[in-house]
């Protein structure tokens, strides 16, 4: 035996066989080992995925892009969810506010403009001005009783018939201010109020704009602005077919007790 080829042939011809019984035993061990490692498959998926991602710059870039998009979507969704405001939240929040001042600019169908001002105190007393008339009410005692004076002469006027219909509708019937009574005071038949989707602007981050739900009411016929964080209404604009209502809400100043006292008014 001289050449390498002959030795190679000798290598190839040298046979080996296996004991079938042991063969089966070894194969069983192998299969069991395979079974043990393939069962907890989920644990192996993450490293495998990481290997695939880290394999090339393109997959790395794609993975980074997916993460960035997911983060943006997450932030957007979180932002929307956390600050979404529905009309019921605004109405509920308004009823719990301790004091407020509402200024209403009203233009009736005959194009006559009026300014109505209403103040409510923490103890549910109300004072309202309309033209030359002053109204006082104490909702904590008598929900339907108004005391009405002539503003310039301070003379007491008799009877609720002197109460303008709008204020009567707004305050008198239920004895409690609510946005529900306010919206029902308008000539337009407002059937429901829903948030109006607006462009993502600086103002839209702080305020929510509502519109009437009914399709037959034009978007400009009713607009309500509320603060996104406090959920308090700040402005109503109502434009029926004729005339308009422009209503401003102010929560910044609480008038003192004398302001709501009819006796103090007459003694001034």
């Amino acid at each position: 035996m001289k050449s390498a080829d002959e030795i190679k042939k000798f290598f190839k011809s040298a046979a080996i066989d296996t004991n079938p019984k042991m063969d089966e035993a070894v194969l069983n061990k192998v299969l069991i080992a395979n079974e043990k490692t393939t069962n907890p498959k989920s644990a192996a998926i993450v490293p495998k995925l990481r290997r695939i991602i880290m394999k090339s710059p393109i997959t790395k870039l794609a993975a980074a892009a997916v993460i960035v998009i997911a983060v943006f979507i997450g932030i957007e969704k979180f932002d929307t969810n956390s600050s979404s405001v529905v009309w019921a939240d605004v109405a509920e929040r308004f009823e719990s506010v301790p004091f407020f001042n509402i200024t209403i600019y009203l233009c009736d169908p005959s194009n006559k403009t009026k300014k109505i001002e209403i103040w409510k105190s923490e103890d549910s007393r109300v004072r309202a001005h309309e033209g030359n008339t002053v109204f006082f009410a104490d909702f904590s005692k008598d929900k339907n009783k108004f005391t009405i004076f002539d503003r310039s002469t301070k003379k007491l006027l008799n009877g609720d018939e002197n109460l303008p219909p709008f204020i009567w509708r707004l305050c008198g019937k239920k004895g409690q201010f609510s946005l529900d009574t306010l919206t029902k005071s308008f000539p337009s038949d407002v059937k429901g109020i829903i948030p109006l989707e607006t462009a993502d602007t600086a103002a839209s981050k702080e305020t929510v704009l509502f519109k009437a739900k009914a399709k037959e009411i034009a978007p400009e016929a009713l607009k309500i602005w509320a603060l996104r964080e406090s959920k308090l209404p700040i402005r109503f604009v109502v434009r029926p077919s004729k005339g308009y209502y422009d209503i401003f809400f102010d929560y910044s100043e609480q008038k003192d007790a004398a302001f709501f006292d009819p006796m103090a008014f007459t003694n001034q």
Partner: peptide, 14 residues
């Protein structure tokens, strides 16, 4: 008896 591999004479020699 528990041996798995069974060698031919050539392989044992090699």
């Amino acid at each position: 008896p528990e041996q798995w591999a069974i060698l031919s004479e050539e392989l044992a020699l090699l």
